[in-house]
Design a protein around this nucleic acid. Structure first.
Lengths: 173, 173
DNA sequence: CGGACCATGTAAGTCGTTACATGATTGC
DNA sequence: GCAATCATGTAACGACTTACATGGTCCG
């Protein structure tokens, strides 16, 4: 899986611009797949060359022009073929856990502050996902499935952090 | 954070070879930080040039020679400075969740098989971490903290998968 | 005798990030 | 007037992964 497949997935649902795609990702898959504009725009160009998608320039009032991309039949085939290809393993890279792993080489204050930062992030994440859940009640069952995973895992993370923070405070007594 | 910092962390604890480092990672941080030999060996060379580490060739009987790397004071400083630097966000890239997100474009059989594969992985992971936990009772509290996180999160994943598999089976009735 | 483990390394290619560059409009 | 939002794009660089290359020992 790479960014091309994810973009093709979104364009299968409806035509979008690079900007739209980025917004869409932020509101849906960002917590398990993230991409920057520097990755999205070149990918769209590549895919246009390969005839997976077609560009349509849309004039807008009071806003810059927009490059709307429409998926072609070739693009749909490519996407469906990805959906049949072997599953790739999940990639995780956590600076927080690496630092805790080597925690004896730093101060308790540092560890506490890292945990608190992560706690805040998890809280924001949870709030964000709950809002999405309320705002779009007609999501299909698969999108709902990943959304609920996001909510549950944010809650799991939150509980873990709170528990560890409590342990660290106990160690101070 | 990059591979250099993680290697310096391990070498702070004791001298090791590239091969040792890879084994060590597999038994400790692999579920939140992974690295291939193709990343480890070049990193060791770079760090030797930068005088963060020093090489010591060790003759072995019945085994190939080993390049044991020892951390220098400069290397220790570099590592400690990393431990004081701003925390980087966690990176997650899940092919499974992307495919479920776009699940309406594939078959239930596919989704079920992906979930079962992931279930098996989580079970193996859980068993592996439990073995590590029993095998090394004298881990410092920080290493134990990350290990228990690994165990808890594997259990969380497992429960989620089992729940989703049950839902999919219900949908068949 | 074959597979697993021990052990090191390189080269080509992939895939991405960050920073830079530009510029209009809307709302406070 | 300033920040945020809308909108697109490139260039330099970083940081890997995969595949290739090599070869010895141990165990069943």
């Amino acid at each position: 899986m790479n960014i091309q497949h994810v973009i093709l997935g979104f364009l299968t649902e409806k035509p979008m611009s690079g900007y739209d795609i980025k917004q869409m990702m932020e509101n849906s898959v960002a917590y398990f797949f993230d991409a920057s504009y520097g990755a999205i725009y070149p990918a769209l160009k590549r895919m246009e060359k390969e005839a997976f998608i077609e560009k349509e320039v849309v004039q807008q009032e009071g806003k810059p022009n927009k490059n709307l991309y429409v998926i072609t039949n070739r693009g749909k085939e490519e996407f469906l073929s990805y959906m049949e290809s072997p599953l790739n393993p999940t990639l995780i890279r956590s600076d927080l856990l690496i630092r805790i792993f080597f925690g004896r080489y730093t101060s308790k204050e540092n560890i506490t502050s890292w945990l608190k930062k992560e706690e805040q992030k998890a809280k924001n994440q949870l709030e964000h996902l709950n809002q999405i859940n309320e705002k779009y009640p007609n999501m299909d069952s698969f999108k709902k499935m990943t959304l609920l995973y996001g909510i549950d895992s944010a809650q799991f993370t939150l509980k873990w952090i709170e528990n560890e923070l409590a342990k660290l405070r106990k160690g101070d007594e």
